[in-house]
């Protein structure tokens, strides 16, 4: 048993000690039965044979993967998904960093109020925020009305990559801010003062001192946002219309519209593999630049 040392617990007759494990048991059971098992099941189904008559045939095969890997369409969707992930991550980072810096360097009281502004959007359902964007971005939406009133040409802002990018960035900025603000707050403001006293301008002091020290937060934030972006479903499907296709959307279609469970499952597994691979490459690169600066 892993109860190496009892702390609060008194010496009890052996055997009764494990009563405390009842605390973790229910959550563990729920997660194992309804989270781990379903994903294992997905993995299992991804190597079954598709069939027009049944959900799948219990015949093991790797064809589902082979077909996906050989199909250029799969790769175009994969590429598109990864591109959206990277673009959203980059854009969120650029917009979130000043916010995080400002937040971390605000006095305590103001920080509380600003945190409310950062967190509130997180708690409004994705669907509702997307709806807000639709009102703004439609061809007849507020922005285009404004352009028209100014005598300018209207611009298609929705049902394309731009709309999706705007919507995704909006959703994930708070995650980025939260990740980064913590590390910036851990950087002593006096370090920047010291750099300035040594003759660095405001920008250089920031760039040479604070920024490198906040990199752990930046890396955590970019990883988080990338993972969340490539996984998202609502925003690409509503703001992208039918023009934007990502892996999660394709998985849902394959399974709920084409009823190809093995094919969809294989794509889902492939998605995890690609996402993890992308993260691995990214963390290797980040580790390398981290060491050279």
């Amino acid at each position: 048993m892993s109860v190496a040392e009892a702390t609060v617990a008194p010496a009890r007759p052996a055997g009764r000690v494990s009563g405390r494990h009842l605390l973790i048991l229910p959550a563990l059971a729920v997660l194992v039965v309804f989270f781990v098992a379903p994903y294992l099941n997905l993995l299992l189904i991804s190597v079954m044979t598709p069939s027009p008559r049944a959900a799948y045939l219990r015949v093991l095969t790797l064809d589902n993967y082979a077909r996906l890997v050989r199909d250029p369409f799969t790769w175009s969707v994969v590429w598109h998904t990864m591109w959206l992930g990277m673009a959203t991550t980059a854009l969120s980072l650029v917009l979130a960093y000043p916010l995080a810096y400002h937040l971390a360097r605000s006095p305590r009281g103001a920080r509380g109020a600003l945190m409310v502004l950062v967190i509130s959007p997180l708690l409004v359902g994705v669907l509702i925020r997307t709806y807000g964007w639709m009102i703004l971005l439609q061809d007849t939406g507020l922005i285009n009305q404004l352009l028209r009133a100014l005598g300018l040409r209207t611009v298609p802002l929705m049902y394309n990559n731009l709309g999706v990018l705007i919507g995704l960035t909006h959703v994930f900025i708070p995650f980025m801010v939260l990740s980064i603000a913590g590390t910036i707050q851990g950087v002593d403001p006096e370090l920047e003062l010291a750099a300035r006293s040594l003759g660095a301008g405001a920008w250089r002091a920031f760039w040479r001192v604070t920024f490198p020290l906040s990199l752990p937060g930046v890396i955590a934030g970019t990883v988080l946002v990338f993972v969340l972006t490539v996984s998202s479903y609502v925003i690409p499907s509503l703001l992208g219309g039918f023009t934007v296709l990502t892996i999660p959307i394709l998985v849902v279609r394959t399974i709920t519209e084409l009823f190809n469970w093995p094919g969809g499952s294989a794509l889902a597994i492939l998605f995890f593999a690609i996402t993890l691979g992308a993260l691995w490459v990214y963390l290797r690169l980040a580790g390398r630049t981290g060491r050279t600066t």
Binding site: T7, A11, R12
Partner: peptide, 24 residues
């Protein structure tokens, strides 16, 4: 006090061995 369990040895209070008693 009974917050840590001795690896070995006994604790006797008055004429009672309390080594295995819960803190309360």
């Amino acid at each position: 006090a009974g917050f840590d369990v001795p690896t070995r040895g006994r604790i006797v209070l008055g004429d009672r061995d309390i080594t295995a008693d819960p803190p309360e």
